[in-house]
């Protein structure tokens, strides 16, 4: 796994909608590099015969029956919304330009 460089951090920050200063980008690049290296050593320890783990708890098939349960009222649903109109969440225009 290649080391994380500053451009990649900037790219990720943009994808995640996180504003980062130049200083922060540099610092994060070196911190993430350490993490990547740590993960690399895990990959070295696990041979090809060890399947990837998607979850730390060895359980499967935790499922529920298809029965209607808890539902919020419209008022409850909208109670945390910064803005609402007509029973719906109101959000700013999505496209910045036409």
């Amino acid at each position: 796994m290649a080391a994380i460089n500053r451009d990649e951090v900037a790219h990720l920050a943009q994808l995640a909608h996180i504003e980062m200063s130049d200083d922060e980008l540099g610092r994060m690049a070196s911190e993430l590099a350490v993490i990547v290296n740590s993960i690399k050593s895990v990959s070295e320890a696990a041979g090809d015969d060890v399947p990837a783990t998607s979850h730390p708890i060895p359980l499967t098939n935790v499922m529920r029956d298809d029965v209607v349960g808890h539902v919020l009222t419209v008022e409850e649903a909208l109670s945390g919304a910064p803005d609402a109109s007509d029973g719906r969440f109101k959000v700013p225009a999505i496209l910045e330009e036409s």
Partner: peptide, 24 residues
């Protein structure tokens, strides 16, 4: 056309009042 949603027990119904079939 299950009665509830994929990952929550809120109802899966078409055409109801907006935001009346949701939970957390």
């Amino acid at each position: 056309n299950t009665k509830t949603k994929m990952f929550s027990s809120a109802p899966n119904v078409f055409g109801d009042a907006p935001n009346s079939n949701v939970n957390e």
